[in-house]
Design a protein around this nucleic acid. Structure first.
Lengths: 206, 206
DNA sequence: GTTGAAATTAGTACGAA
DNA sequence: TTCGTACTAATTTCAAC
């Protein structure tokens, strides 16, 4: 146990700090909650190997600290009627970031949006009913946003992996079961890191 | 209940079929479950405006039909100690897709992987502790997979939007509150759709 | 599809180690 | 801190309508 007299209530979180309250027990709790978010606290305590009261305390703390943002269902988009998924890479007009974000919030088809380094400025992932809707969304709705300078669209053909989240405690199940001859340094030279375009350090009103 | 041999869910789902069981009530259930996956069935029934027994029936059906895949927590990756997120675009050697998928399953840092059209073959999203880990993962772990021909990495600077999932019933809150003069066809000409490279129709052992 | 029972379980509050 | 237990309130289940 660390003796850093951190008596601050609710413990304000600071960006640079490594979460000290994420011990092995809390990580196991998150691990269980990842595969069954509706598990009862009693069952959770049982699976983690702690008492019910302790499980309640840690559970609430994880929520209060913001480690757990919310509980939600994971839905199969195809079975829900949204069979088409696409990625749209957006070049954003400088100093119009705020408008870009505001407009995105008004688009319910957008499941995910991230600001990236590299050739483009942002990547958004959308889910819609059919391909025609993608076309309409890109050429009409997105194109009508002044902050959007250009877009590049690719379709998602198959989603290989979709994990709810990952934890620092996740480790490789198999420690490289390959023949030693092939395990050496990169046999291929085409690993490329893409840096941002010139003038991209300016994130405007982000 | 029809008893197929292995107790598989009622009503086998077929890829082309539009989910007929997703009426307005089920969509409202999913909508509630999206923002609170731990809500009790009683409260769910109350919020949707149906009886408890009905809510139980529909709830179980949505799970059995595979519309709801699972319930899970949504965790803040930064607060969980994984502050660095990156996208890696991978060019996969033809007819080595199966190996690619198998190797990915062994990499716990990978949160998401999708096969895409366009210049690259797949996009994977990873979360790790620091930037150095990204570098090691790309130049050593990924590069040592024979199926990986080339990669291109971009870092995620900020995650603007992260919705659990979206539903067909989600609609635009505001019906285009723009002046009519600007609502016409695309004012910008740089909306680009990227098709797959030559020979990309072959998905190998996918 | 709805309502109303009983049975079970969840959530909370104490002490004790 | 963590655990164990008792108490109260809520939920799930099963019945009949």
């Amino acid at each position: 146990m660390d003796e850093t007299s951190d008596g601050s209530p609710t413990e304000e979180w600071q960006p640079g700090r490594i979460p000290a309250d994420l011990d092995a027990t809390n990580l196991r709790i998150l691990d269980v909650l990842r595969e069954d978010g509706r598990i009862s606290i009693s069952a959770l305590a049982q699976r983690v190997g702690i008492s019910r009261a302790n499980a309640y305390t840690r559970f609430e703390a994880l929520r209060a600290n913001g480690v757990i943002i919310r509980f939600t269902a994971q839905v199969d988009p195809v079975r829900a009627g949204l069979g088409v998924c696409a990625l749209i890479f957006v070049t954003v007009r400088q100093q119009m970031w705020r408008q870009f974000r505001n407009q995105l919030a008004l688009m319910p088809e957008v499941e995910y949006c991230a600001i990236t380094t590299g050739q483009h400025d942002a990547m958004i992932q959308i889910r819609v009913r059919d391909v025609a809707t993608v076309h309409h969304l890109v050429t009409h709705r997105l194109a009508s946003i002044p902050a959007v300078k250009a877009t590049e669209t690719v379709f998602i053909l198959d989603e290989v992996l979709r994990r709810p989240f990952i934890l620092p405690s996740d480790e490789r199940p198999l420690p490289a079961p390959q023949p030693a001859a092939e395990t050496g340094p990169s046999p291929l030279g085409s690993m490329r890191f893409v840096r941002a375009n010139a003038g991209r350090a300016d994130l405007g009103g982000l």
